Simulated scan of single mutants.
Amino acid sequence: MEVIDLTKTIFDGMPVYSGDPEVKIDVATTVKKDGHEVRSLRLGSHTGTHVDAFSHMHEGMASLDDIPLTQFYGRAVRVTPKMDFPAHTGLFFGEDVGEDVLEKIIAASPPFVGGSLSEELESGLLAHKIVTYTDLVKLDLIPSGEVFTFFGLPLKIENGDGSPVRAIAVLGE
């Protein structure tokens, strides 16, 4: 079994999508002074490697706390737009993809899709109740076409439109 961390590290001042809140991480308390160490975090819900709820782009659709946990983990495969997509399996693209693959993805009925997704594709997927993951790293370490188990659990944010996640791929189970 091999575990691959697909998560970008969150750090103070890291680059964010234009218009998103800046990342600010401060030391709030220290072991030396206070007996324990705590960080103060200020960041947007779509910082770094993150998951998008349907409500992110569609008013009135489900937020993170309304989406079943089963939609944030499961069987997945790294694919290219030209491959056949397995049914009911999460799909991850190692290359930029646009909305021209939307209907093909919808036909496969995946619980989640990740990779470098165009804004139009992401909106279409969310409209069809398919969770999206963006800003993943190291997808190239997953062999194309090989089924693996994916975990990308969000924070349980009331009315959350998205959340940073610790995304991992488990290969060879």
Rank of each mutant, 00 (worst) to 15 (best):
residue 2 E to M: 13
residue 2 E to I: 11
residue 3 V to E: 13
residue 4 I to W: 01
residue 4 I to Y: 03
residue 4 I to E: 07
residue 5 D to T: 10
residue 6 L to C: 10
residue 12 D to L: 00
residue 13 G to N: 06
residue 16 V to S: 03
residue 16 V to Q: 07
residue 19 G to K: 05
residue 20 D to A: 14
residue 23 V to A: 02
residue 25 I to V: 13
residue 29 T to C: 02
residue 30 T to D: 10
residue 30 T to L: 06
residue 33 K to T: 13
residue 35 G to A: 09
residue 36 H to A: 15
residue 38 V to K: 14
residue 39 R to Q: 15
residue 41 L to G: 07
residue 41 L to A: 05
residue 42 R to L: 12
residue 44 G to K: 06
residue 46 H to G: 10
residue 48 G to V: 00
residue 49 T to K: 04
residue 50 H to K: 09
residue 53 A to I: 09
residue 54 F to I: 02
residue 56 H to E: 12
residue 56 H to R: 12
residue 57 M to C: 07
residue 59 E to S: 13
residue 61 M to W: 02
residue 63 S to F: 08
residue 64 L to W: 06
residue 66 D to R: 15
residue 68 P to Y: 09
residue 70 T to C: 10
residue 71 Q to V: 02
residue 74 G to H: 09
residue 75 R to I: 05
residue 76 A to S: 13
residue 79 V to K: 03
residue 79 V to E: 01
residue 81 P to I: 04
residue 83 M to H: 14
residue 84 D to I: 08
residue 84 D to V: 12
residue 88 H to D: 15
residue 90 G to C: 03
residue 93 F to G: 01
residue 96 D to Q: 13
residue 96 D to L: 11
residue 100 D to R: 11
residue 100 D to M: 02
residue 101 V to P: 02
residue 106 I to P: 02
residue 106 I to C: 08
residue 113 V to N: 02
residue 114 G to H: 03
residue 115 G to Q: 06
residue 118 S to W: 09
residue 122 E to K: 15
residue 123 S to K: 15
residue 125 L to S: 04
residue 129 K to W: 07
residue 130 I to Q: 00
residue 131 V to I: 14
residue 132 T to D: 03
residue 133 Y to T: 04
residue 137 V to P: 00
residue 137 V to M: 06
residue 137 V to E: 11
residue 143 P to N: 03
residue 144 S to D: 12
residue 145 G to V: 03
residue 145 G to W: 02
residue 147 V to Q: 08
residue 149 T to Q: 10
residue 155 L to I: 12
residue 155 L to G: 14
residue 156 K to W: 12
residue 157 I to E: 08
residue 159 N to C: 10
residue 159 N to E: 14
residue 161 D to W: 07
residue 164 P to S: 09
residue 164 P to H: 12
residue 164 P to A: 10
residue 168 I to L: 09
residue 168 I to N: 01
residue 169 A to V: 00
residue 170 V to Y: 08
